[in-house]
Design a protein around this nucleic acid. Sequence first.
DNA 1: TTGACAACATACCAACCGGTCGGTAGGTTT
DNA 2: AAACCTACCGACCGGTTGGTATGTTGTCAA
Lengths: 199, 199
Amino acid sequence: MSRRSPYGSGRERLLDAATTSIRRKGYAASGIDELCAQAGVTKGAFFHHFPSKEALGIAVAERWGEIGKGLAKEVGGRTARARVLAYIDLREALIEGGTDEFTCLAGTLAQEVHQTHPRLRDAAANAIEATAASIEQDIASALRDAGRRHVSPASLALYIQTVLQGAFVVAKAKGDPAPARDALTHLKRYVAMLLTGER
Amino acid sequence: MSRRSPYGSGRERLLDAATTSIRRKGYAASGIDELCAQAGVTKGAFFHHFPSKEALGIAVAERWGEIGKGLAKEVGGRTARARVLAYIDLREALIEGGTDEFTCLAGTLAQEVHQTHPRLRDAAANAIEATAASIEQDIASALRDAGRRHVSPASLALYIQTVLQGAFVVAKAKGDPAPARDALTHLKRYVAMLLTGER
DNA sequence: TTGACAACATACCAACCGGTCGGTAGGTTT
DNA sequence: AAACCTACCGACCGGTTGGTATGTTGTCAA
């Protein structure tokens, strides 16, 4: 409601610190003290903004979902097919630098807490689902244009996110973004094939 | 050298407990005390067999790599193409039950510790790499037969593992193996297309 | 001027963490 | 029979963890 003062500067910095740390070391290994230190706030501030560590995780996952949705809006293209392929190109272009710079927070979170923190897992699942949904309309149009009535748009949209998640895991394991980009090359070949009328 | 007595019964049970626990809750959340309780041994026994928690993780990852390699040997088929497709079918068939039953230990491990435990990450990477390598020969033959000289066998072999990793992440996030099987359907369609002479 | 409230800070705690250590039981080697 | 081995036990330790209790400060509406 009311929003006076430099609102959320501490809260926002905690969110940023958590994003970085979780992408780097995971949820369990990201201690509250350490997040506070990185954000330049004290523990009192932490528990002022979040009732628990899990609540911070949920907030961070929700923010991540918004970022994921935003990516789809960045791509242009006249046809639906062009936009879908441009989206994959964009995702490929983003795979650069350290593993904590291009990796997916929601996937990391989900893999670690899926059995122990149901609400955190749901928040992560929503983020991934929202990202997938943000390109589903274009995929539906493109599939229709290509006459692929037996392929579900939702399934293909989620598959793109699935490959991305796998690419991040392999990149982390190898300590190298190259295999992740390789995976996207395969994905793009598949999607291009699907979105072409040929049978 | 010498190998008397009921060697490794406690050690083996610790390895089993760690496999289950890491797949369920990740590495950091798998406490030594808890692993000992699940294995029915004491902490003293733990540190008799492993110098540290990390060493247990490495041992578990190495064992996992052997399991991964074993899967390729289970598939038959007259042609290389048939064997590759049968391998994907096998992997799809294994996706069943709870997320901690079909999920990949190495992927979970890698994602969590890639920045913090280099040796653990390497062990996980080796497990994934070994699993990919176990089908690379068949992939190479099948690609040759299909005349796909521009597709690298190693890249496609790793891509299959990549999609599997992504499928596991999404299955965990959604708490449902169905989207993982969906992903394998897409993967199979792609591989089948690649391994067919048509252009 | 006041007083309510958000946005912090300081100090502290019980539980838990990975890891250590001195010791024991029972078999094999010399 | 002394020396030595593997396998295992469980009390203990210092540090870290998520979380709490209480105090301080700055802002703004009444």
